[in-house]
Write a protein that binds this DNA or RNA. Structure first.
Lengths: 223, 223
DNA sequence: CGTCTATTTGAGAGATATCAACTCTCGTGG
DNA sequence: CCACGAGAGTTGATATCTCTCAAATAGACG
């Protein structure tokens, strides 16, 4: 069982609206550290990530926060609930997004059926991915969680460099901690352990080099 | 922020198929401790619970298990992913279910648009409910988790008895533990604590009486 | 080069898991 | 109707893991 972030290995879930049915709505760009939407905002659009990385999270009065997911190209974000967004979404890097009107996705009449089916499939994919994350949060140890997280990132944004896979983390340790249900210190210690065991190497704080993907996979699995 | 199980306060999300579009598919009944489907089964149908309670869970080689959700009347279960069910679903009580062919829900052409829209809304609701559960698993203490769980059950299947709310748990402690990401012993201790503090009372093992719903709510929130 | 912030590391406290023993329920059969 | 027994639940003692608080280090930026 692999942990998935949002929509692993998934590109272009939503087909472009066919001109027959919908006018093209302009692509949207977002600067780092700007919000796409906030918890409670009225939701009339969903978005598909074209490029960049975003963070979806919920905040609480007492300062606690849960990071729900990180989104990468191909992912769909902004699923509404009762007309509102149930979490806040912020760009971690420069982003390009394709917005879709909720209306055109929910009620198929007179709209593009392929687009519609694509949206449903994306939602199903989202649900399955969240099931994986339940397992991570409910059953796994700190190192297992980080290993699962890095495994997912590797398959999502990893690039081969020589015999290794590497990628640049778009999020800080605190984001990772709140995503994995750990403290930043525990995340840091887990990083250190993976480094000590030569499973990964760090280049600076943000660049991760996977030295032994098989072992990382194995460590990601339940004990 | 309240924790929700699946679809709180939600009855009959999916409208009955209009005869204009689809033939009525026969309702389905399930005995306790029988599976509706298993992880990996090919998925051609989704189901809406008409009566009873079910458990959705994932199993692992090493014996660990994560209970993904409990489903009650009004809930939709069996969201497929890549043509398969990603978890196993088992009846905890006698159940009645309304099956729907996936095909009629995914591609709207020539099918019932209202049914289709209902399915999309149910999926959105599911996604929002899972966000709540992430918060529970990622941020809450044992007692907070149990309080949140009981709060959700109270609003879902609770019945007023005098000035109190009461309900019969359809699942055992181990199910609750695997749902909340705790051990059965910790769940048991949390029950005992709530009892000691006169927030709940137990009648036998399975019947829960909520003595102080406000306090239970408060305890369910993050510290 | 210095400052500010994020990250890492260390030490100790706290929460939950684990292992073991005991108790309670509830179904079964006398 | 009551007694019995198996399984589920509870409780206790201890181990383990993660959190918290504090200090040191490293990296980013002016």
């Amino acid at each position: 069982m692999y942990i998935t972030l949002d929509h692993p290995g998934c590109d272009a879930i939503l087909p472009q609206p066919s001109s027959k049915y919908t006018r093209k709505i302009n692509e949207l760009t977002l600067e780092p550290d700007t919000n796409l939407f906030r918890q409670g905002d009225p939701a009339s659009q969903v978005f598909q990530v074209k490029s960049g990385a975003l963070r979806l999270s919920r905040y609480f009065e007492d300062g606690r926060r849960q990071v729900i997911s990180f989104s990468f190209p191909g992912d769909v974000i902004g699923y509404p609930f009762e007309g509102e967004y149930s979490a806040s979404c912020r760009a971690l890097t420069p982003c390009r997004l394709q917005p879709y009107r909720m209306q055109q996705l929910i009620s198929p009449d007179g709209e593009d059926p392929a687009l519609h089916a694509g949206f449903v499939k994306a939602a199903m994919r989202e649900i399955a991915a969240m099931h994986d994350h339940f397992v991570l949060l409910g059953q796994k140890s700190a190192v297992e969680r980080l290993a699962a997280f890095l495994t997912a990132l590797a398959s999502r944004i990893g690039e081969p460099v020589g015999q290794y896979t590497q990628f640049k983390l778009p999020m800080c340790r605190a984001d990772i901690a709140d995503y994995l249900g750990l403290s930043t210190e525990t995340v840091s210690r887990a990083f250190s352990q993976l480094r000590r065991e030569k499973v990964i190497a760090l280049d600076g704080i943000l660049t991760v080099v996977i030295l032994d993907l098989d072992t990382l996979h194995r460590m990601a699995e339940a004990a």
